[in-house]
Amino acid sequence: MWIRMLTAMLAGTLLLIALLSANAEYRLFMPGLLEGAVLTVEITLLGAVLAVFMALIAALAKLYGPLPIRWLSTTYIEIFRGTSALVQLFWLYFVLPQFGVFLDAFVVAVLALGLNIGAYGAEVVRGAIVSVARGQWEASIALNMSKAQMLRRIILPQAFTAMIPPWGNLFIELVKSTSLVSLITLADLTFKAQQMNQSTLKTVPVFTLVLLMYLAISLTVTIGMRLLEQRASRGLTRGRVA
Protein backbone atom coordinates (compact mmCIF):
# COMPACT_ATOMS: atom_id res chain seq x y z
CA MET A 1 0.00 0.00 0.00
CA TRP A 2 2.73 2.45 1.08
CA ILE A 3 4.93 1.33 -1.76
CA ARG A 4 2.16 2.09 -4.22
CA MET A 5 1.72 5.61 -2.85
CA LEU A 6 5.48 6.20 -2.96
CA THR A 7 5.68 4.90 -6.51
CA ALA A 8 2.84 7.22 -7.49
CA MET A 9 4.75 10.11 -5.92
CA LEU A 10 7.89 9.15 -7.81
CA ALA A 11 6.00 8.88 -11.07
CA GLY A 12 4.39 12.26 -10.39
CA THR A 13 7.76 13.84 -9.65
CA LEU A 14 9.34 12.48 -12.82
CA LEU A 15 6.32 13.54 -14.84
CA LEU A 16 6.54 17.04 -13.39
CA ILE A 17 10.23 17.26 -14.30
CA ALA A 18 9.39 16.11 -17.84
CA LEU A 19 6.52 18.59 -18.17
CA LEU A 20 8.61 21.47 -16.85
CA SER A 21 11.49 20.71 -19.18
CA ALA A 22 9.08 21.01 -22.12
CA ASN A 23 9.24 24.69 -21.25
CA ALA A 24 12.29 26.36 -22.82
CA GLU A 25 13.03 28.36 -19.66
CA TYR A 26 13.44 25.12 -17.74
CA ARG A 27 14.91 22.95 -20.51
CA LEU A 28 17.93 25.23 -20.65
CA PHE A 29 19.08 23.98 -17.25
CA MET A 30 18.43 20.29 -17.70
CA PRO A 31 21.77 19.10 -19.17
CA GLY A 32 23.84 20.85 -16.50
CA LEU A 33 21.61 19.72 -13.65
CA LEU A 34 21.56 16.13 -14.88
CA GLU A 35 25.37 16.20 -14.93
CA GLY A 36 25.30 17.33 -11.32
CA ALA A 37 22.73 14.67 -10.47
CA VAL A 38 25.07 11.98 -11.77
CA LEU A 39 27.80 13.14 -9.39
CA THR A 40 25.29 13.28 -6.53
CA VAL A 41 24.24 9.69 -7.21
CA GLU A 42 27.87 8.55 -7.49
CA ILE A 43 28.80 10.07 -4.14
CA THR A 44 25.65 8.62 -2.58
CA LEU A 45 26.40 5.10 -3.81
CA LEU A 46 30.07 5.09 -2.79
CA GLY A 47 29.25 6.80 0.51
CA ALA A 48 26.59 4.16 1.21
CA VAL A 49 29.04 1.32 0.61
CA LEU A 50 31.60 2.91 2.94
CA ALA A 51 28.91 3.65 5.55
CA VAL A 52 27.63 0.07 5.66
CA PHE A 53 31.18 -1.26 5.84
CA MET A 54 32.16 1.11 8.67
CA ALA A 55 28.92 0.50 10.54
CA LEU A 56 29.40 -3.27 10.56
CA ILE A 57 33.05 -3.06 11.62
CA ALA A 58 32.41 -0.44 14.30
CA ALA A 59 29.34 -2.21 15.72
CA LEU A 60 31.05 -5.60 15.92
CA ALA A 61 34.17 -4.00 17.38
CA LYS A 62 32.15 -2.17 20.00
CA LEU A 63 30.24 -5.30 20.95
CA TYR A 64 32.87 -8.00 20.82
CA GLY A 65 36.29 -6.40 20.41
CA PRO A 66 38.97 -6.38 23.08
CA LEU A 67 38.91 -3.29 25.29
CA PRO A 68 41.23 -0.98 23.26
CA ILE A 69 39.33 -1.80 20.05
CA ARG A 70 36.05 -1.15 21.83
CA TRP A 71 37.29 2.27 22.92
CA LEU A 72 38.52 3.06 19.45
CA SER A 73 35.18 2.21 17.94
CA THR A 74 33.24 4.15 20.59
CA THR A 75 35.47 7.16 19.96
CA TYR A 76 34.82 6.94 16.23
CA ILE A 77 31.08 6.67 16.73
CA GLU A 78 30.87 9.52 19.25
CA ILE A 79 33.09 11.90 17.28
CA PHE A 80 31.27 11.42 14.00
CA ARG A 81 27.82 11.56 15.58
CA GLY A 82 28.73 14.41 17.88
CA THR A 83 30.09 16.88 15.33
CA SER A 84 28.26 17.84 12.20
CA ALA A 85 28.80 16.44 8.74
CA LEU A 86 29.86 19.81 7.37
CA VAL A 87 32.50 20.26 10.08
CA GLN A 88 33.84 16.79 9.24
CA LEU A 89 33.88 17.58 5.55
CA PHE A 90 35.75 20.87 6.10
CA TRP A 91 38.14 19.25 8.53
CA LEU A 92 39.15 16.61 6.01
CA TYR A 93 39.25 19.17 3.21
CA PHE A 94 41.08 22.03 4.91
CA VAL A 95 42.97 20.52 7.83
CA LEU A 96 44.34 17.27 6.41
CA PRO A 97 46.48 19.11 3.81
CA GLN A 98 48.13 21.01 6.66
CA PHE A 99 49.29 17.64 7.93
CA GLY A 100 50.66 16.85 4.49
CA VAL A 101 47.75 14.63 3.41
CA PHE A 102 46.34 15.77 0.09
CA LEU A 103 43.15 14.07 -0.98
CA ASP A 104 41.02 14.68 -4.02
CA ALA A 105 37.81 16.57 -3.17
CA PHE A 106 35.77 13.62 -4.42
CA VAL A 107 37.61 11.25 -2.09
CA VAL A 108 37.14 13.67 0.80
CA ALA A 109 33.43 13.83 0.06
CA VAL A 110 32.95 10.06 0.01
CA LEU A 111 35.12 9.62 3.11
CA ALA A 112 33.43 12.32 5.19
CA LEU A 113 29.86 11.33 4.32
CA GLY A 114 30.53 7.59 4.51
CA LEU A 115 32.23 7.91 7.89
CA ASN A 116 29.47 10.19 9.15
CA ILE A 117 26.57 7.96 8.15
CA GLY A 118 28.61 4.90 9.15
CA ALA A 119 28.81 6.17 12.73
CA TYR A 120 25.01 6.44 12.92
CA GLY A 121 24.74 3.09 11.16
CA ALA A 122 26.99 1.48 13.76
CA GLU A 123 24.38 2.19 16.42
CA VAL A 124 21.68 0.81 14.14
CA VAL A 125 23.64 -2.41 13.60
CA ARG A 126 24.48 -2.71 17.28
CA GLY A 127 20.86 -2.16 18.28
CA ALA A 128 19.64 -4.77 15.81
CA ILE A 129 22.16 -7.36 17.00
CA VAL A 130 21.34 -6.75 20.65
CA SER A 131 17.62 -7.03 19.95
CA VAL A 132 17.87 -10.57 18.58
CA ALA A 133 16.25 -12.80 21.20
CA ARG A 134 18.56 -14.27 23.84
CA GLY A 135 17.24 -17.73 23.09
CA GLN A 136 18.81 -17.59 19.65
CA TRP A 137 22.26 -17.17 21.20
CA GLU A 138 21.55 -19.94 23.68
CA ALA A 139 20.36 -22.34 21.00
CA SER A 140 23.52 -21.60 19.00
CA ILE A 141 25.69 -22.33 22.03
CA ALA A 142 23.78 -25.56 22.64
CA LEU A 143 24.59 -26.51 19.03
CA ASN A 144 28.24 -25.83 19.84
CA MET A 145 28.72 -23.10 17.25
CA SER A 146 31.67 -20.75 17.46
CA LYS A 147 31.03 -17.06 18.10
CA ALA A 148 31.78 -16.23 14.46
CA GLN A 149 29.41 -18.95 13.22
CA MET A 150 26.61 -17.72 15.50
CA LEU A 151 27.00 -14.16 14.29
CA ARG A 152 27.27 -14.99 10.61
CA ARG A 153 24.65 -17.70 10.34
CA ILE A 154 22.13 -17.00 13.09
CA ILE A 155 22.30 -13.50 14.53
CA LEU A 156 23.17 -11.20 11.61
CA PRO A 157 20.58 -12.69 9.22
CA GLN A 158 17.89 -11.99 11.81
CA ALA A 159 19.28 -8.58 12.72
CA PHE A 160 19.38 -7.72 9.01
CA THR A 161 15.59 -7.52 8.77
CA ALA A 162 15.38 -5.20 11.75
CA MET A 163 18.08 -2.96 10.27
CA ILE A 164 16.45 -2.23 6.93
CA PRO A 165 14.00 0.53 7.94
CA PRO A 166 16.55 2.57 9.94
CA TRP A 167 19.09 2.14 7.16
CA GLY A 168 16.47 3.47 4.75
CA ASN A 169 16.32 6.65 6.83
CA LEU A 170 20.10 6.87 6.99
CA PHE A 171 20.43 6.53 3.21
CA ILE A 172 17.96 9.42 2.80
CA GLU A 173 20.12 11.44 5.20
CA LEU A 174 23.09 10.50 3.03
CA VAL A 175 21.38 11.65 -0.18
CA LYS A 176 20.58 14.95 1.48
CA SER A 177 24.02 15.46 2.95
CA THR A 178 25.66 14.99 -0.44
CA SER A 179 24.51 18.57 -1.09
CA LEU A 180 27.24 19.67 1.35
CA VAL A 181 29.95 18.61 -1.10
CA SER A 182 29.03 21.64 -3.20
CA LEU A 183 30.77 23.66 -0.47
CA ILE A 184 34.09 21.96 -1.21
CA THR A 185 33.86 22.80 -4.94
CA LEU A 186 32.46 19.49 -6.20
CA ALA A 187 30.04 20.04 -9.07
CA ASP A 188 27.10 18.09 -7.69
CA LEU A 189 23.42 18.95 -8.12
CA THR A 190 23.50 21.71 -5.50
CA PHE A 191 26.72 23.21 -6.88
CA LYS A 192 25.26 23.33 -10.39
CA ALA A 193 22.12 24.96 -9.04
CA GLN A 194 24.09 27.63 -7.23
CA GLN A 195 26.25 28.24 -10.28
CA MET A 196 23.29 28.54 -12.66
CA ASN A 197 21.40 30.68 -10.19
CA GLN A 198 24.28 33.11 -9.95
CA SER A 199 24.94 33.28 -13.68
CA THR A 200 21.31 33.49 -14.92
CA LEU A 201 19.38 34.74 -11.85
CA LYS A 202 16.57 32.41 -12.94
CA THR A 203 16.12 31.32 -9.38
CA VAL A 204 12.66 29.79 -9.52
CA PRO A 205 13.19 27.35 -12.43
CA VAL A 206 16.62 26.29 -11.19
CA PHE A 207 15.63 25.55 -7.60
CA THR A 208 12.30 24.00 -8.52
CA LEU A 209 14.03 21.52 -10.81
CA VAL A 210 16.72 20.77 -8.24
CA LEU A 211 14.19 20.12 -5.48
CA LEU A 212 12.27 17.76 -7.77
CA MET A 213 15.45 15.90 -8.71
CA TYR A 214 16.46 15.38 -5.09
CA LEU A 215 12.93 14.25 -4.36
CA ALA A 216 13.14 11.71 -7.19
CA ILE A 217 16.45 10.35 -5.88
CA SER A 218 15.18 10.11 -2.30
CA LEU A 219 11.92 8.44 -3.34
CA THR A 220 13.85 5.89 -5.39
CA VAL A 221 15.97 5.05 -2.34
CA THR A 222 12.89 4.79 -0.09
CA ILE A 223 11.04 2.53 -2.54
CA GLY A 224 14.10 0.32 -2.94
CA MET A 225 14.46 -0.10 0.81
CA ARG A 226 10.74 -0.84 1.24
CA LEU A 227 10.98 -3.58 -1.39
CA LEU A 228 14.03 -5.02 0.34
CA GLU A 229 12.18 -4.94 3.65
CA GLN A 230 9.20 -6.80 2.20
CA ARG A 231 11.47 -9.41 0.76
CA ALA A 232 13.53 -9.91 3.90
CA SER A 233 10.58 -10.21 6.25
CA ARG A 234 8.86 -12.79 4.04
CA GLY A 235 10.83 -15.75 5.39
CA LEU A 236 10.20 -14.77 8.99
CA THR A 237 6.49 -14.20 8.86
CA ARG A 238 5.38 -16.43 6.01
CA GLY A 239 2.02 -18.06 6.71
CA ARG A 240 2.26 -17.63 10.48
CA VAL A 241 0.07 -20.14 12.30
CA ALA A 242 -2.32 -18.32 14.54
Partner: peptide, 11 residues
Protein backbone atom coordinates in the same frame (compact mmCIF):
# COMPACT_ATOMS: atom_id res chain seq x y z
CA UNK B 1 19.70 -29.16 24.81
CA UNK B 2 16.01 -28.55 24.17
CA UNK B 3 14.57 -25.29 25.49
CA UNK B 4 11.25 -24.31 27.00
CA UNK B 5 10.73 -21.68 24.29
CA UNK B 6 11.99 -23.90 21.40
CA UNK B 7 14.48 -21.26 20.16
CA UNK B 8 14.28 -22.47 16.59
CA UNK B 9 16.03 -20.23 14.05
CA UNK B 10 13.11 -18.34 12.47
CA UNK B 11 14.92 -17.63 9.20
Amino acid sequence: MVFQSFNLFPH
